Amino acid sequence: MFKKAERKQARLRLALAGPSGSGKTLSALLLATGLGGKIAVIDTEHESASLYAEYADFDVMSLGAPYSPERYIDAISSAEAGGYSVLIIDSYSHEWIGAGGCLEINDAIAKQKYKGNTWSAWNETTPRHRKLVDRILTSPLHIICTMRSKTETVQGEGKKIIKLGMKSEQREGSDYEFTVVLDLVHDGNVAIATKDRTRIFDQPEVISADTGRRLIAWLNDGKKQDEHGAEAVNEAISKIPVAETMQELQSIYSAAYRIAEQMPEPLARLNAAKDKRKAELTEAA
């Protein structure tokens, strides 16, 4: 059924991409400060985020290798359980290119099961990466991901050497998952929008806390999130009675639970529907 489109309140999904030294971590922290609320940082950059503790009030989790999608998912769950409002993933690139990340996972699967055929191995690696993407998209937190960019050095005016960020070091097409993608230029730490559904970044700018305040104003300028959440929970409740397997039931329930957990009445109805269908499936088995 079609219905009139309306913009609802939303959670931020923003990517900051740039070469080494372009200011990704500090920009993310300043932006998060402007968004408001408790800030958590998943730090895969050898505790580099803590170097900026004077600029923002935040808690940090140091995440070392292996950088598997599952470890990122567990870290996101910890941030949600900790009552944070904003999560910075610094850096999202490690899940793809880091030790124990998707590229290494795929090579290992190819050698173990497909006689070195990496193309076939992606049938197993891609779903694991996709689970992380889905986790980021469905989280109730505002999420900011930093991504490394492959660097190219060029000579500017006056023979000045300039670092330019090229392609982001993540899976091809990862930019599509974000509301805003900002490329940071090494010279001056200026952010340039390569994708912007907010239409806030019509000009290059240096990221500050005010950037975050402008974003939160845009995110909150829509239909009340509780109304949107109740609609999503009601839709899940309508799907639960026709779930054919425990796995399908769990998938429907988990997605709706993250929305309903702060709404007692919808949560009670969701749990009742889930328990009833679980009992029916158990009996049928």
Rank of each mutant, 00 (worst) to 15 (best):
S27T: 11
D275K: 12
Y55V: 10
G100R: 05
R128P: 03
H46L: 05
M147I: 13
Y72G: 09
D221F: 04
A256Y: 04
S254R: 12
Q170D: 14
F178Q: 00
W96M: 13
M147F: 05
N189V: 12
R277H: 03
G98S: 14
K167F: 08
Q112H: 15
S254Y: 09
Y114G: 09
L215R: 01
Y176C: 13
D226R: 12
R128M: 03
S238P: 02
S174L: 04
I207P: 01
A230L: 13
S208I: 12
P19Q: 03
A285M: 07
A79P: 05
I200Y: 00
T146F: 00
S50M: 14
S50T: 15
V190K: 06
N234K: 09
P264H: 03
A121G: 07
P266Q: 00
A40M: 08
M166V: 14
R11C: 07
V133S: 06
E152P: 03
T126K: 13
S120Y: 09
G173Q: 01
A53C: 10
I39L: 02
I42H: 02
M1F: 10
E280N: 11
I216A: 08
E124C: 01
P140I: 07
P241I: 07
Y84D: 03
E283I: 10
T146S: 02
Q262R: 15
L87R: 15
E244Q: 13
T138W: 00
S77C: 11
K159A: 15
T138G: 11
A121S: 08
G173A: 02
G229H: 14
A81H: 11
D59A: 15
L141Q: 00
P264Q: 06
G18V: 06
V41S: 03
I143R: 00
L14P: 09
I207R: 04
L87V: 10
W119K: 13
K8N: 08
P241Y: 05
I136G: 01
I216D: 01
K163N: 15
I143F: 01
R148F: 03
H46Q: 06
K223Y: 04
S22D: 08
E248H: 05
A232Y: 09
A230G: 14
A99L: 13
L16N: 01
P69D: 04
P140S: 08
G34E: 03
D226A: 11
L215K: 00
T118G: 07
Y55G: 08
Y176G: 10
D57F: 14
A256L: 02
N234M: 02
L141Y: 04
D226Q: 09
A75V: 15
E157V: 15
S120E: 10
F2C: 11
R258F: 10
K239A: 12
K159T: 14
G173Y: 04
I144P: 02
A232M: 08
Y253S: 11
K239S: 15
C102H: 09
K160M: 09
K224E: 12
C102L: 12
A110E: 01
R135A: 14
E177S: 13
T282M: 06
A279Y: 01
K113F: 13
E6M: 13
P204Y: 06
A49W: 00
E261R: 14
S27F: 01
R199A: 09
L30S: 13
A255G: 08
E205G: 05
T198C: 05
N117S: 08
R135N: 09
I109R: 02
A191S: 03
A53G: 12
